[in-house]
Nucleic acid binder design. Structure first.
Length: 649
DNA sequence: ACAAATGCCT
């Protein structure tokens, strides 16, 4: 028997060079056959099961003949206990006992290191094993995908095909995952499409797992129609497939289709009961369209099925109520939670955030810290947003510092963007620009976008141009940036520049995202767009708007603000275009169709424009109704000619 | 004998 003394190195299982010769000898020895029954070392086994990994390792050092099964248990235990130093001890011992070329254990080791977030060591195991079974290949694909090393997966996948190693059904799911997490977005979608072709060529087009992963892959690239095509082509769909497709619609700005699909699922499959994951996506769709009645029905279902003990469901409920304008209902859900996690706390913080209650959001953040819940990066995004809304520059700066110093959270681009927004909104644009210049990381599109947004508020043409120089480079296909710049030029009456930006937009084949508003009437949800010919009431809606507008100008002093339209058009023409904004259509639709006295609840996919804001204020007084509009950021509650945002949004 | 798909808070 070969005896190799235990290695001293603490972080690497690789032996020093003078021992390699022994190792090679060890390698050439066939792995010990497990003639010995597994219960030969019952104590290691039982210690592993109890999670006492340190004690198990101690016994291992005295064990004369550890078997493959012993190591399997030890490796699993290390992964469960999350102790990497113990993992190294086990790995070293395994090498010393001649198991380092055992593919079964290599698979286990790769998975273990992956679970311990140590992709480097997982890769080392893979590189050093010479006999790579399909399990070993799949394990490294899984590990690389989870750790975000998509490019490495593609490289290895190509190697695997070159040496003629056949893929199996597991390979495809991992490689598709790699596309989603990969570093460079565009090339990954190309890869995804290629893998899709491989999958069809190998006859997996009916495989539920693989097809569902494909649906999700396209969803993550916002290729909603591709997801939908794959989904429709599936001869067999299970709950996960349906949930993936519903989530795809919810996450990609098509909430109505998410809700429709959910209802189709329930109708077509009597025995397919939605689970908590399905419910979360459906709640997100309700939130997106402010479908309060639908949301309440779902809430009832959740209670009946006992899904109200599941934190993600509760967090989604809180958000749904808040985004529908029902702060109190959202709070109630939060206080029904037994023991919340950081996500449910974040939900409550953002609950106050969308209602523009910055001080309350800050207070909840402090309460969360006092309750001993560690704030997450997202907690800071929310709370910095609150500071920005309140104009609390110093408070925001100190929170940012404590995030880095106290909580050791490395600022992500979102956090930098929050700071730029904070400074920019407070009309400290120069300081914001200096903050960007002093950043430790390369400023990305979110940061420049925040600066551009602030420039719009304060009409700073020069700085806006500087931000756009970067933005047009970093995300040339984001139409929103062009529109914002054109808005700023229009505000400054620089019509030639407005035209120039418009032409640039067209030359690049881009269109601004069309405005869309949603409204729920009698538990049915309607969407309205300015170019909508489908709504049978469109003529009635237009007539009402013209009449309202005229009467409010005469009787209550409403002044239409046509400046929000980019083009250098005649005033009358601008008026006509502005009256066609989707939220005004929705207001009129609500006035026509909602019961008297009922609150009109509208949601919109973009930011509320100034004229619509002013118009809705006047309408609320003129017709004596409460109107709640949620735009991308926040709630506007219009009552008696006033808005809850106090004209600051 | 080993391995897979959907979701909460920005």
């Amino acid at each position: 028997m070969f005896h190799i003394q235990a290695l001293q190195s603490t972080n690497l299982p690789t032996p020093p060079s003078h021992q390699r010769r022994h190792l090679i000898l060890a390698v050439s020895r066939p792995p010990p056959t497990s003639l010995s029954a597994p219960n030969k070392n019952p104590s290691i086994q039982s210690l592993c099961k109890k999670g006492q990994i340190k004690e198990a390792i101690h016994l291992l050092t005295h064990e004369q003949n550890p078997t493959q099964h012993t190591y399997e248990l030890l490796i699993q235990s290390c992964a469960d206990q999350n102790t990497i130093s113990d993992a190294f001890s086990v790995h070293r011992s395994l090498i010393n006992n001649g198991f380092n070329q055992d593919p079964f254990l290599a698979t286990k080791l790769i998975n273990m290191y992956s679970d311990l977030n140590s992709i480097h060591h997982a890769r080392k195991v893979f590189d050093e094993i010479t006999h790579r079974t399909i399990y070993v290949w799949n394990a490294i694909f899984r590990a690389l995908s989870i750790s975000g090393h998509g490019q490495d997966v593609f490289t290895l996948y190509r190697q695997m095909n070159e040496i003629g190693m056949p893929n199996d059904r597991f390979t495809y799911t991992y490689v598709l995952k790699a596309c989603v997490v990969s570093e460079s977005e565009l090339s990954s979608l190309c890869y995804g499409k290629q893998i899709h072709a491989h999958i069809l060529r190998h006859g997996y087009e009916t495989h539920v797992h693989i097809m569902t992963t494909l649906v999700d892959m396209y969803a993550k690239f916002s290729c909603v129609d591709s997801s939908s095509l794959v989904f429709s082509s599936m001869p067999v769909k299970n709950l996960v497939s349906w949930s993936a497709m519903i989530a795809c619609f919810s996450k990609n700005g098509r909430p109505l289709e998410a809700l429709r699909l959910f209802h189709d699922m329930m109708l077509e499959n009597e025995n397919m009961l939605p689970n908590s994951v399905t419910m979360v996506s459906v709640l997100q769709a309700c939130a997106a369209v402010s479908a309060l009645e639908q949301g309440k029905l779902i809430h009832g279902y959740i209670l009946r099925k006992g899904l109200d003990s599941i934190l993600p469901v509760m967090s989604a409920l809180i958000t749904m109520y808040a985004r529908c304008g029902e702060l109190e209902l959202g709070k109630n859900v939060f206080y029904q939670i037994d023991k919340g996690d950081v996500v449910s706390w974040n939900s409550l913080i953002s609950c106050y955030g969308v209602h523009g209650l910055g001080s309350e959001a800050l207070a909840v953040f402090q309460e969360m810290v006092r309750a001993g819940v560690l704030p997450s990066p997202i907690s800071f995004v929310s709370v910095l947003g609150a500071c920005s809304h309140l104009g609390l520059v110093e408070e925001g700066k100190s929170l940012f510092n404590s995030m880095v110093k106290e909580y050791k959270i490395r600022p992500a681009e979102e956090h930098y963007a929050c700071m730029v927004d904070l400074l920019g909104r407070a009309n400290r644009l120069d300081e914001a620009a200096r903050f960007i210049a002093d950043m430790r990381d390369e400023p990305g599109p979110k940061v420049w976008g925040a600066l551009l947004g602030a420039c719009r508020i304060h009409c700073n043409v020069e700085l806006a141009e500087r931000a756009c120089k970067w933005l047009f480079e970093l995300e040339p296909r984001n139409a929103g940036n062009y529109v914002l710049l054109a808005d700023i030029y229009a505000e400054a009456k620089m019509w030639d520049e407005v035209k120039r930006v418009k032409m640039l937009l067209e030359a690049r084949g881009l269109q601004k995202v069309p405005g869309c508003s949603w409204i729920e009437v009698n538990r049915k949800i309607y969407s309205l767009r300015s170019v909508d010919e489908l709504n049978p009431q469109m003529e009635q809606i237009h007539a009402l708007l013209v009449e309202l507008s005229r009467e409010m100008v005469e009787k209550s002093g409403y002044v239409p603000e046509a400046k929000v339209v980019l083009y250098d058009l005649e005033y009358e023409e601008k008026q006509r275009l502005v009256l066609g904004h989707s939220e005004k259509l929705a207001v009129a639709f609500g006035l026509i169709n909602c019961r008297r006295g009922e609150t009109i609840r509208i949601s919109k996919n973009l930011r509320l424009c100034e004229d619509c804001h002013s118009f809705t204020k006047f309408v609320s007084k003129f017709v004596g109704r409460e109107i709640i509009v949620r735009d991308v950021n926040r709630i506007h509650r219009f009552r008696d000619g006033e808005c809850s945002c106090r004209d600051y949004w």
